[in-house]
Structure formats: structure tokens, C-alpha cells
Design a protein around this nucleic acid. Structure first.
Lengths: 156, 156
DNA sequence: TTTATTGACTTTCTTTGACCTTAATTATAT
DNA sequence: ATATAATTAAGGTCAAAGAAAGTCAATAAA
């Protein structure tokens, strides 16, 4: 089953597109629209609309409260440069990497194809085997990339 | 009689045929369908649906989790598929990799851009092997890819 | 000896709810 | 009319429960 969180994510992104990247909503409205706990909205925002994802959020409590979501549009080179220099430290988990890739695709910095290739190169499955044998690691990564290319072909 | 694992293998392959090589399933469903331990599904996947066998698998945990199985295009029997199944063994030096990439470009299987990206992911510099810490390795690979994207921009 | 099977334990991701904080509005006392 | 108190209307936090899949090692079967 598609997760509710994914559906809400898509919903918000659609709203954002319709409103040119800026949007104000009412947490309780959204929650009752999807018939879920209000805090699930926070969960969606916290896991899919962070700064790293390229969104900025501000909110206000009390009467007339709201949540405002803004999609940040960045310059491609600036963003890549930032990621390279500061955004990524000495370690990077697969989940984090995937988030970066998603953002890069959403902002049109790389094609889905590129993202797919890159993802295949850095996936846990590809890297696995901590045998410290460089060539062995590379062989796996390379095979994984070949698989990605093959399955891309299949997709069209 | 045939072992359960073989039966499950056949079952999955039948499903794949019916769904044109792409399939999403629920591990627990399958396990309870065959009345076996869920981990047996993993065993079947690990022993019969590997990259070398020509399958690509991705999965997700948590609520709404799934396992996705993609059959890579066996009929094609082209260069990429050959490379994946037989052409590359357990190890692969950088020079060999580069030769493969060159050939793939020459034969029109991938663009120069693709080759450039891939090369950046598998270069000695990218893999570097400091410790056995996976995430550390991935971070390097990912940075390397970013650098590649940046320098692609510069070139055009 | 290799290949299968099982199950206990782990990790990841999602959903829910109880409780907290803040802001605006309304009622009350001066 | 004004200051203060109470009420209501938001949103925030966090931890527990639930829903998957993953790992690994012990055993069993071939």
C-alpha cells in the first residue's frame, strides 16, 4: 500500500506547483482532509520538506495559526559546490544520499537517468563487502551500474 | 521433491513473466503464502535473484514496505548483459574498467556523459580505501560524482 | 559438505496520541 | 475605557506502538 505520508507529500508538492513554490496551510485542515493525526503532518514535513530537501518552513501557533512552506530555488552550480564543500561530511548514509539525489532531480540539476546511475553506484548493495579490496569493491559498483543501465533500457 | 526455495523461485519467475519483468511484493505475504519463515524469501532472493543472475532488487522497510524485483533484459544478450554476467569477475582494475567504458561509448551503449559520471564513481581516487567504513567510502564516491557534474558544466 | 530452513533479534519507517506552548479572542473587574 | 483573566484556537514535541524488511547463526536436509 502506498504510505499515507507519501500521499501527503505528493499532495503538498502538487499544491506547491500550483502556487509557484509558496504555500500556506492549516495543519488541522490537512490532517482532517486525510483523516490522520495532526502530528503526522509534522512527520511528513520533518522527513520530506527539510532544508536539505530544498524547502523552508515557518509556522505560527495560536488563533489564525498556519504553516508556510517555501520551495527554495537555488543556482545549480552554487548548490553542487555547496554540497561538495560543506553539505557532505566525511560520511554519508544511503538515505541521506538518496535525499540529495531526489532534490537534485526535483530542481532539474540532473536527469532521472543520472540519478539512477549515481544511486546504483553508491547504494549499500553496491558498496557492501568491507573486504578492503579495492578492485573487488569496484567490480561490484561497476556491475551495479551496468544493471542500472540495463534496467533503464528496459524502462524505455 | 523440489525444495521449497526452488518452488518460490519458480513462483516469482512466473509472476515476473506475467508482469513484464517488474514486480513488487510483500515479504510477509509471500512467506505466509508458502507457509515459511519470512527470511526464507531473503534466502531465495540472495541465492537466485542476484545481479549475476540478471535481477535487480530494491526494498523498503517499515509500514508500507515492499520488495521490488526487476528482471534485466535477458533476451537482448547484448554487450552490457554479457559484461554483467560473465565479462566482469570478482575484481576489476581501473584500467580494465576504463576500457570497458570506452568500448561502451564506442558501441553507443552509453553517452560520454554517462561514462564520465561512471568513471568518476569507480576511479581509484574515488574509492581510495581508507578504512572499512562503508559510509566513508560512499561519501568519497558521491563527492567525486558531484565534482564530475560540476566539471561537465564547465565543459559546456 | 554444501544447500535449505527456521527463528530470534535488529533496523528502518510510519502512525497515533497524550501533553505542551503560543497566540488571539472574549469576559471580567477596576 | 483599560487592564487582566479565562477561553479557545491554533501548532509543536516526543515517545510508544505498529508495520514492514534485514541479519545471522543454529540446525536440518540432501
Amino acid at each position: 500500500m502506498a504510505r499515507l505520508s507519501d500521499i501527503i507529500e505528493e499532495f503538498i508538492k502538487t499544491l506547491l506547483k500550483e502556487s509557484e513554490g509558496e504555500l500556506e496551510l492549516q495543519r488541522n485542515d490537512l490532517a482532517s482532509y486525510f483523516d490522520c493525526a495532526p502530528s503526522q503532518i509534522n512527520y511528513v514535513l520533518a522527513t520530506r520538506f527539510t532544508l536539505n530537501h530544498g524547502y523552508y518552513i515557518e509556522s505560527r501557533r495560536g488563533g489564525g495559526g498556519y504553516i508556510r512552506i517555501v520551495r527554495l530555488d537555488t543556482d545549480k552550480d552554487d548548490y553542487l559546490f555547496y554540497l561538495l564543500k560543506e553539505g557532505i561530511g566525511k560520511e554519508l548514509s544511503e538515505q541521506e544520499a538518496v535525499k540529495h539525489l531526489q532534490r537534485m532531480v526535483e530542481q532539474g540539476f540532473i536527469s532521472k537517468r543520472d540519478a539512477y546511475i549515481i544511486n546504483s553506484a553508491i547504494s549499500d548493495k553496491a558498496i557492501a563487502i568491507p573486504s578492503t579490496l579495492k578492485d573487488g569493491i569496484r567490480a561490484r559498483i561497476f556491475k551495479s551500474i551496468l544493471a542500472a543501465l540495463l534496467s533503464l533500457d528496459e524502462k524505455k
